[in-house]
Amino acid sequence: MVSHRRTSQHAQTTLTGITVVSAALATAAAALSAPPAAADPAGHPSAGREAAAARVDSLYVEAERATEKYNGAQARTKELRHEVAALQDHTARAQERVNRMRGRLGALAAAQYRSGGIDPTVRLMLSERPDTYLEKAAALDRLGHSQAEELHGLRTAQRRLEQQRSETARKLTELEAGRRAVARHKRDVQRKLATARRLLNALPKRDRAAYDRASRSDGHREAAPDLRGAVPDSGRAAAAVAAVRAAVGRPYAWGSSGPSSFDCSGLTQWAYGRAGVSLPRTSQAQRGAGRTVPPGRMRPGDLVIYRSDASHVGMYVGNGQVVHAPHPGARVRYDPVGMMPISSVTRP
């Protein structure tokens, strides 16, 4: 079972809290799903308690995965908005250039009209689509050198304008798809968190408080571990470690990248941002945002990527500890680096 919760230094108190909470969670899960007899036909209460606790933990993991998908879609739509704005600006400039070129050709046509008529080649230059005429070599033979240059320039400008319009339309379609993906992932996160909240809110007040203590979600800030002798790999890593340690105690909020609240990748992105280093928004992208190092050679400031799908990230701060934003309802905290399966370690 993958879980962000671990036994605290006050082992006896925490284990007692977990026992009380597990029993209450079993009751809550039974009320929300199936009768106790059906949930535990063999008559083993521990099986029901473990299943209920595992379900809450699983919901938090699923919600975090959906959060990282939301973060990725959100980051991509932001990029697309900038790209579309740039394309629209370039398209407007290209349209102005085409208009100026057509204006010069219009002046030439007016001069020819006053002198007795408009040359067919000038009519060609003023047409909306001169391409077909240009395909004929005979037409080029009838053009003067300067007129040919004007027409070639207009043809190139019009083609570029059409390409930019097509690219803008494609990016706008992609942007709309991205917006739908953001909304879909947001609903997914909200649905999973609502289910977890229903399970937890069904607990009696005393048992809910015990759960918060057991999962260290009650705002209690533990003493910082001894990190003396932990030397970061660089000055920027040292600055990032200082930032992430200063964030300990701030609440988890999905989709948030600080400074008052964070999700897992938002925390590491913010901390390295304080050090002047730009990291991608998602834990999956942060995995590739630097040099991969063996877990046995971790240094303070390294990003520790968890789970096979890279859906969680924390920052190693030394002496076997990471700082991370665990899950909704919890706060940024220290935990052992081996709290869950490590996928990889990245040194930005």
Rank of each mutant, 00 (worst) to 15 (best):
D233V: 11
E222Q: 14
A209M: 06
H220Q: 13
A237C: 10
R216G: 12
V241H: 08
D207F: 01
A194N: 02
R221G: 04
R221H: 04
L200W: 05
R197D: 13
D226L: 06
R213S: 11
V244S: 02
P204F: 04
A239R: 10
S217D: 15
L200F: 01
G235P: 11
R213C: 00
G219D: 10
D226H: 04
A214V: 14
R213Q: 11
A238D: 07
A194H: 10
N201A: 14
K205H: 14
A243C: 04
R213I: 05
R208F: 12
A202W: 13
L203Q: 08
A214Y: 14
D212K: 13
A223K: 15
L203S: 06
A214R: 09
R216V: 07
R236N: 10
G219W: 15
L203W: 09
S234Y: 09
A194I: 00
H220C: 02
G229W: 12
A209T: 13
A239K: 14
S217M: 14
R236F: 06
L200S: 07
V231D: 04
D212C: 07
R216F: 02
R216C: 08
A230V: 02
A243H: 11
R206C: 00
L203V: 10
P204A: 04
P204Y: 01
T195F: 07
D218H: 10
V231C: 03
D207R: 03
A240E: 05
R216L: 15
R228C: 03
G219V: 04
K205F: 02
R198G: 09
P232W: 03
R221M: 07
S217E: 12
L199Y: 08
P204L: 05
R228P: 00
V244F: 00
V241T: 05
L199R: 02
N201S: 11
A224I: 01
Y211I: 00
A237I: 10
R208S: 07
A243V: 06
D226T: 03
D212T: 03
L199M: 10
G219E: 11
D207K: 00
A238H: 11
D212R: 15
A210V: 12
A214I: 08
K205V: 10
R198L: 09
A237H: 10
